[in-house]
Nucleic acid binder design. Structure first.
Lengths: 197, 197
DNA sequence: CCCCTTCTGGACCTGCCGGTCCATTCTGCC
DNA sequence: GGCAGAATGGACCGGCAGGTCCAGAAGGGG
């Protein structure tokens, strides 16, 4: 039953990407299954064939798809925070990513619909944040080992604060259209690390 | 036409508060006008009598209602950040507010539905953030005048970073259920200010 | 070439929910 | 007490969007 051909997998992928694009364009709450159907040149039965759980399951797949992009868009710098130059490059990359993305955070917008209710969706965002934070903390630890950050700094706490600043900066970017908060949070966080004993 | 009796005003208020409660309980996208009607012991015609713009206008009123609470819940400390003790009390109050509120941010959840699309809703959140940030910046400036914070710190940038940390901390609280990010962001931000030349 | 599974198309159904309407009751004022 | 305007009750509607169903095409092992 679980058998799926290459063609089927391609269709499924097309549906997810089309749904993601639709959500980016018109928002979650205005995106209907018919919109997705039209965009992806599929039929209603295909949607339910690949996502028996209906709309909720499709949204979850979209959330996973978008969550993966968030981290991969930050590579290779995020995975290699081993010098202040890397930190700065990473900072610039994050800011630029959200500048290019404009006032749209597909993941945030998906989560706010399906997020707090269903455990599956919550797991997606929790896991994303866990990995994100863990990569930052690894960077802090590496800089500590190199003597660039003082031993008094707790890597987990610093990573948590930095991540919170990023999330809030992005959120404020969505609301106000300005990137100043994101930049301020990153700059202040990094400056704090650099100046720590 | 714009005439409204005391009774009418009371009903309108009851509707807003009931709608806010409903949204807190079951989420925006699951809250129907019938839910609000049942909760507030009103009739359909009353809803449209007081909110001719329908659901969208009602949601906007709820957003305003919740936005007002956000700032007033932080008083009196937020308006009087004139000593490190005040800053700490404010920090504790913010953390405690969101601890008590649980994993619900009515404002965030309302904005995510109606937020990015309509200009009215956007104005509500933008204005809230502007006032919030401005009060923090005033606190920074006051501490600078008292010589407790170095002159190198730019009040606006510091306030922006702090606000971003708070927003992100709250967002992560919603997702993960933990307050560690909010605490870390506030603590790191304040520590940075205290240790600044 | 045959048969079984997967894949696709699209008509159809159905419940829900925002919104409309009018009749009735209440309120305040002269 | 009567009347104008506000407030209320609730039946009704219309469309839309999620979901179902079945018939048929495609595909791929044997």
């Amino acid at each position: 039953m679980g058998a799926v051909t290459a063609k089927g997998a391609a269709t499924r992928q097309r549906i997810v990407e089309g749904a993601a694009a639709a959500i980016r364009d018109i928002g979650v709450m205005d995106t209907t299954l018919d919109d997705v159907r039209a965009r992806t040149a599929t039929s209603k039965s295909q949607l339910f064939h690949y996502f028996p759980g209906g709309k909720e399951e499709l949204l979850l797949a979209v959330a996973r798809f978008e969550a993966d992009r968030v981290l991969s868009d930050q590579q290779p710098y995020l995975g290699d925070l081993t010098s202040w130059a890397s930190w700065q490059a990473w900072r610039d990359q994050v800011v630029d990513r959200y500048r290019r993305q404009g006032r749209q955070c597909p993941l945030n917008v998906v989560m706010s619909q399906v997020g707090h209710s269903t455990p599956g969706a919550q797991a997606v965002v929790t896991e994303l944040m866990r990995r994100w934070e863990s990569e930052i903390a690894a960077g802090v630890r590496h800089m500590q080992a190199a003597g660039e950050i003082g031993p008094a700094v707790q890597p987990e706490e610093a990573a948590a604060a930095l991540l919170a600043g990023i999330q809030g900066g992005v959120l404020l970017h969505l609301s106000t259209g300005r990137l100043t908060h994101l930049e301020a949070a990153l700059d202040m966080g990094i400056r704090h690390l650099r100046g720590s004993p």
